[in-house]
Simulated scan of single mutants.
Amino acid sequence: MDTIHDTTGTLDEALQRLHTTGPEFDGWLSNHGPMAVESLVRGGQAPRVHRWLDQYSERLDAMPAPGDPIRADDWQGALGDPKRLADWIVFFERAVTERPWRDVLAEWWPRLLPGIAAGATHPVIRVGHAVRTLLAEPAGTNAPRLAELAHGLGYWAARHQPLPPLTSLPSVPDAAGALDSVPRIDDQSGGIRARFTRLTAFPAWAEAGPVDPDAARERLGELVGAAVRMYGTHALGSPVMLVHAATAPNAVLRTLPALPRELWAGSLEAAWAASAAVTSVYAPSTPAPAPVPSGAEPEEVFARAAAHGNDHAIKFADTALEVGGDAALGAAVLALDLIEPA
């Protein structure tokens, strides 16, 4: 599915509407609106966007008021403090208007990447969608899209959450085998933050040692594909949450072209940690049979996802279509069957 230029301005209008709302609602549930509308527009479903958003926005909370400004020379104490959510967003809104957005991203990406598990991986996913919109913009200075990047980065900084120290298990050479080898936590109950505290060990993926940037990008694509296909055999464990085992590393993959190449290898490591963590805390140990290919064309599958309306189903279909192939399309169709429609 090729990138579709939004000649109608629908995406920018939708983002402006969403920027009056906070990144979270009902406690700490993530606002998926910006990610879903970007996927809809990119997938050729722009006419659905505002109608979809009218319904979705009814559940959202207003953007909280900022309080104490974040300072560029004294930000560490505010990292991971959800009470500073609005302060972080204001900080990044100012940053992306004063400096090129790629420079801001390159500075903050390695600072935020250790906390990739933040907000159940939604902040990094939101950043990945924002970067994709900016890369599609010739000048890269579109105000709503710059603001969306600021909201994503601010959300990530406020919810920054490193994973616990983990023991490294023997290496597995391929992504699919590595995901299969991830030990499942004994107690798969409670919210994702509580589950993450029970993580103890991951297998290494491939041989240890330096990874050149091009190899890192290739392996990251392999991971996304493996996670999408794993959904087809493990989704019954948690149809909504297992979506993130694929969409989180795909967000990192989408961001690579905007980053300095020296950051690509570290990005691969963090993406693997995020995908493995979600797999460990939500995937069942025993796979189900893979779904039978539906024979549907990619555009048909995404149109079905758009009509289905669930934000996770839309985002997963977007990622599955980027992976391509019968198994990936089958996983996207399975998500439409398992996830409750909007």
Rank of each mutant, 00 (worst) to 15 (best):
residue 2 D to C: 08
residue 5 H to A: 04
residue 9 G to W: 03
residue 11 L to Y: 03
residue 13 E to T: 07
residue 16 Q to E: 13
residue 16 Q to I: 05
residue 23 P to M: 06
residue 24 E to F: 12
residue 32 H to K: 00
residue 34 P to D: 04
residue 38 E to L: 01
residue 42 R to T: 02
residue 44 G to M: 11
residue 45 Q to E: 14
residue 45 Q to D: 11
residue 46 A to P: 11
residue 47 P to L: 06
residue 48 R to V: 06
residue 50 H to E: 12
residue 50 H to R: 08
residue 53 L to A: 07
residue 53 L to Q: 13
residue 54 D to K: 07
residue 56 Y to V: 14
residue 56 Y to Q: 09
residue 57 S to L: 11
residue 61 D to M: 00
residue 61 D to Q: 07
residue 62 A to C: 06
residue 70 I to D: 13
residue 73 D to T: 14
residue 81 D to R: 06
residue 87 D to V: 10
residue 91 F to Q: 12
residue 92 F to L: 09
residue 93 E to H: 08
residue 96 V to R: 02
residue 98 E to T: 03
residue 102 R to I: 04
residue 102 R to V: 02
residue 106 A to P: 10
residue 107 E to A: 09
residue 108 W to A: 14
residue 110 P to R: 11
residue 110 P to L: 12
residue 112 L to N: 11
residue 115 G to V: 03
residue 115 G to S: 09
residue 118 A to E: 15
residue 125 I to K: 14
residue 126 R to V: 07
residue 132 R to M: 05
residue 134 L to Y: 12
residue 135 L to C: 02
residue 137 E to V: 00
residue 141 T to H: 13
residue 141 T to C: 07
residue 142 N to D: 01
residue 142 N to R: 00
residue 146 L to P: 01
residue 151 H to D: 09
residue 152 G to I: 15
residue 153 L to Y: 15
residue 153 L to C: 09
residue 155 Y to N: 06
residue 157 A to D: 13
residue 159 R to P: 08
residue 164 P to N: 05
residue 164 P to D: 10
residue 166 L to I: 11
residue 168 S to N: 02
residue 169 L to G: 15
residue 169 L to W: 14
residue 170 P to T: 13
residue 171 S to T: 12
residue 173 P to H: 12
residue 173 P to Q: 15
residue 173 P to C: 03
residue 177 G to Y: 14
residue 177 G to S: 07
residue 180 D to F: 03
residue 182 V to C: 11
residue 182 V to Q: 08
residue 182 V to P: 01
residue 184 R to S: 12
residue 186 D to M: 04
residue 190 G to Q: 13
residue 191 G to D: 15
residue 191 G to M: 06
residue 192 I to D: 14
residue 193 R to Q: 00
residue 202 F to T: 04
residue 203 P to E: 05
residue 204 A to C: 02
residue 207 E to D: 12
residue 214 D to T: 13
residue 214 D to M: 08
residue 216 A to E: 05
residue 217 R to F: 01
residue 222 E to R: 03
residue 223 L to F: 11
residue 224 V to D: 13
residue 230 M to E: 07
residue 232 G to H: 06
residue 232 G to V: 10
residue 234 H to P: 15
residue 235 A to I: 12
residue 237 G to S: 10
residue 239 P to M: 02
residue 239 P to N: 04
residue 244 H to R: 05
residue 246 A to F: 00
residue 247 T to R: 07
residue 252 V to K: 14
residue 254 R to W: 07
residue 255 T to S: 15
residue 258 A to E: 02
residue 261 R to D: 15
residue 263 L to A: 14
residue 263 L to T: 03
residue 266 G to N: 09
residue 273 A to M: 08
residue 274 A to S: 15
residue 274 A to M: 10
residue 276 A to H: 13
residue 277 A to Y: 09
residue 278 V to C: 07
residue 278 V to Q: 05
residue 281 V to M: 01
residue 281 V to E: 11
residue 289 P to V: 02
residue 289 P to T: 01
residue 290 A to L: 12
residue 290 A to R: 07
residue 291 P to I: 01
residue 293 P to M: 10
residue 295 G to L: 11
residue 300 E to P: 01
residue 302 F to E: 03
residue 303 A to I: 03
residue 304 R to V: 01
residue 308 H to D: 03
residue 311 D to L: 11
residue 312 H to D: 11
residue 319 T to N: 13
residue 322 E to T: 03
residue 323 V to H: 07
residue 324 G to R: 04
residue 325 G to W: 00
residue 334 L to W: 00
residue 334 L to R: 11
residue 334 L to I: 03
residue 335 A to G: 08
residue 337 D to N: 04
residue 339 I to A: 02
residue 342 A to D: 14
